[in-house]
Write a protein that binds this DNA or RNA. Sequence first.
DNA 1: TTCTAGATTGGACAGGTGTCCAGTCAGGTG
DNA 2: CACCTGACTGGACACCTGTCCAATCTAGAA
Lengths: 188, 188
Amino acid sequence: MSSAPRQGLNPRQAETVERLLAAGDQELREVGVDGLTVRTVALRAGVSAATAYTYLSSKNHLFAELFLRLLTDTDPPVPTGKDAVERVQSVIRQTMGSLGSSPELAAGATLALLSTDPDVARLRLRIGAEFVERFRGALGDGADPVVLEALALTFSGALLQAGMGLMTYTEMGERLDAVVATILRGNV
Amino acid sequence: MSSAPRQGLNPRQAETVERLLAAGDQELREVGVDGLTVRTVALRAGVSAATAYTYLSSKNHLFAELFLRLLTDTDPPVPTGKDAVERVQSVIRQTMGSLGSSPELAAGATLALLSTDPDVARLRLRIGAEFVERFRGALGDGADPVVLEALALTFSGALLQAGMGLMTYTEMGERLDAVVATILRGNV
DNA sequence: TTCTAGATTGGACAGGTGTCCAGTCAGGTG
DNA sequence: CACCTGACTGGACACCTGTCCAATCTAGAA
């Protein structure tokens, strides 16, 4: 836990939020998505359940917040390779790789992000935008918006697939190599 | 409600399941995904909660079952158009169109299908296969498996997007026209 | 018609979610 | 140093999910 994207919190509140998020992260690794309850997270953070709910509107909100941090606390992926295809592939592999380092979180958050909770909806937009930016970074600024949309939809589908455990995030990243090559063929 | 894909049920049980599914469908339309509870569905079906849980392992299972029926009770889409692109586009628009006739169900089921419940996992595979078959029907039997995978991932991403209410299923269907054209370009 | 296997019931149970509120505590201000 | 505002607490609340089981129906076999 490091970056603190929360607005309008005084130092004491910020500290509480940090403790909650750190506890959530720990708890998630130890007991998994299903075993985690808001109250055990609060307990681990040394805070009452009521306090947890002042900062986290739901369990889904907790997951979404952790996921955003997982994405933004990691170094942003660097597109490498000689053409657009290789650059997009490298970005996707790097992104999948960092998600693969916290598979429980990634899987839990993927589901959580689908919640109708307004706090989650906000984060969902932020996260979606982050992915699109990564693809734009790989394709360059003149990127065809339709290509970006195709990549974004494909990627979200892939996230789900991986989240359901049929294959690891890393494996999915490799599998997407062929898919990306196909999508970009004729659209460089 | 009509088709009865359940195995090994005697007529009495089949009747009970039918009533439950019909009640679930109704309830979903009236109170929405969040308002629906297994017990109100059971009540509406004139059956006890215990009985409902005998046939439906969870609320997610109910949604998944209803979604499969929504897909398979409708006439299968007929690919029309002079080339592969148009044929795939037409299949997607028809599919999105029939989902659009029950948006609450489609949205609820899209989420439900992500559950780890084994009964849901079975239905998820069936449903995923159904979509792939539809694309294969549009592309012809020699279809490149990678293209099929790209379409499937994109389509599942699109279902989620539509399920989250940013646009209707019909609008998403139209929007996918451009995406499909882009994906297939160079891959006819 | 009587029997009986199997479907159904009601109601309790353990556990989770998210909400609420009166009361307590702590740190910066005057 | 006493004060007061805002963060935090604890515990109750309503409601949901899924599970369980002894008791009760019910339709077809004998």
